[in-house]
Design a protein around this nucleic acid. Structure first.
Lengths: 247, 247
DNA sequence: CGGATGGAGATTGAATACAATCGCCGCTAC
DNA sequence: GTAGCGGCGATTGTATTCAATCTCCATCCG
């Protein structure tokens, strides 16, 4: 079996996705051999992925006792949105500043153009999804847009922080996708325009409003009875050799 | 050799410390075998530690090309402080709310008392350090105080975020410890008092001022010629079998 | 009949071994 | 003299293997 060259990354993304989408419910035991056989690799890449997930707060581990899926951070929802607002607004401001520097001709950076082009594609894909009422594609595109802007900001530190927070918030939304759907998506072009114009203040303000609006949508939905969610009971995990998340 | 039960954690902390303190300068190559022999373990724990460090943004890795120490995020300094202000203020507010719930008798949580007692010890140790002019101990105690308050807040998500940001900021300060020394340390007791009183608004405000003040100290120091630092050249790394950070 | 205790099975922690890939150095050709 | 190229050493990626520890369940004792 040839080395997949980034099997750990693939395994990491897959497990995290299974957790976020509720295919691995909170409390479920995740054993290394089960995951290894599920993804067709040995335990080593799985171990690395599990350790990363532990650092990200998606699983709890105890020495020799294995790992379980962590509890969904329901109590942190409001604060997570608050932190995310600040981070995203900062990112938008810096992205605008960097865009301005680029049109001015300074900083001849090819990676910047790559990131900018990727955003164009994401925006177009999202518009098509909205036009064809394929709203199921929007959550994924939404994440990619925001991470794309982070890329454009040029700050690895802020990108990493946003990535961590986004995962948690995505988890909160859980399988409850399309939180505001069309309207929310439309706001992305406004943010992008401000960035392209190099208008740092406007980009910062628009992004903050956008995130705040997303937060309101979440709170309205879950204020009363928070998240019926898939996390029914601390069991039903994968334990056998081929049972992972086939629900 | 018996399993150390958390060798990866120890290795992770050690390497991160070496990076933050400049013993492993930016650009230095860090090979698995060198680290393994330095810490007396095999490559497996080292791999897990390196992957965690990559997620934290301290090293850059490419498949089959190995890992190098990342560049110090100098350009992110101001924004990192901004995000940290929000996170710490939120943490302080929640810690106060939780303290209020505890004196009220709700939530009989033994781990809370453990965390609270640890903070008492940290504050006392810091006072002793100040009294005996052992200011070299303050940076370490400073980090522990802030992480201790995060623990008290009861939010694993916010704790993880703070941990990540603190590492970066500590890196910025680099070997330049005792940034404001005695005065900064004294502010900790004010924050702690507000938390113990269950005064959420006051705790939030005091913590934000405290972090903002720390930021001013940093900017004043490094505004002109940012960080002479140990990152002289992209070389001098550890490559041999026993050369790690013996500088 | 309830709770402690011992052992078997399962699972993780770590080391060793091997395959795949990269980077460097000398060589060749122009 | 310099640019392209092939081989070799070094390093990473992964699998296999064994030791240490935990969990669960049946058993025994009070």
């Amino acid at each position: 079996m040839r080395p997949e060259q980034d099997a750990p990354q693939r395994v990491l993304d897959s497990i995290r996705r299974d957790i976020i989408l509720g295919r691995l419910p909170p409390g479920a035991r995740v054993t290394e051999v089960a995951l290894a056989s599920r993804y067709g690799v040995s335990r080593i890449p799985v171990r690395e992925a599990l350790r990363a997930l532990e650092a990200e707060g998606f699983v709890d581990s105890r020495p020799y006792a294995g790992s379980t899926v962590a509890a969904i951070p329901l109590d942190d929802a409001e604060d997570l949105f608050g932190v995310r607002r600040v981070i995203e607004a900062t990112i938008a401001r810096r992205a605008a500043l960097r865009a301005a520097a680029h049109v001015a001709g300074d900083a001849p950076d090819t990676s910047w153009w790559t990131a900018r082009r990727a955003l164009t594609d994401i925006l177009d894909d999202g518009d098509r999804a909205v036009a064809s009422d394929a709203l199921g594609d929007l959550p994924e595109l939404n994440i990619r847009f925001h991470l794309g802007v982070a890329e454009l900001s040029g700050s690895a530190s802020l990108s990493a922080l946003l990535r961590q927070i986004s995962g948690k918030i995505e988890w909160l939304y859980a399988a409850d996708v399309d939180h505001r759907g069309k309207q929310s998506w439309g706001e992305h072009r406004l943010v992008m325009a401000a960035i392209d114009a190099g208008n740092a203040g406007e980009a910062e303000r628009l992004m903050e409003d956008h995130v705040a609006s997303s937060q309101r949508g979440y709170l309205e939905r879950f204020a009363a009875g928070p998240v019926p969610g898939p996390g029914a009971g601390p069991a039903a995990g994968i334990t056998g050799t081929d049972a992972a998340g086939r629900g």
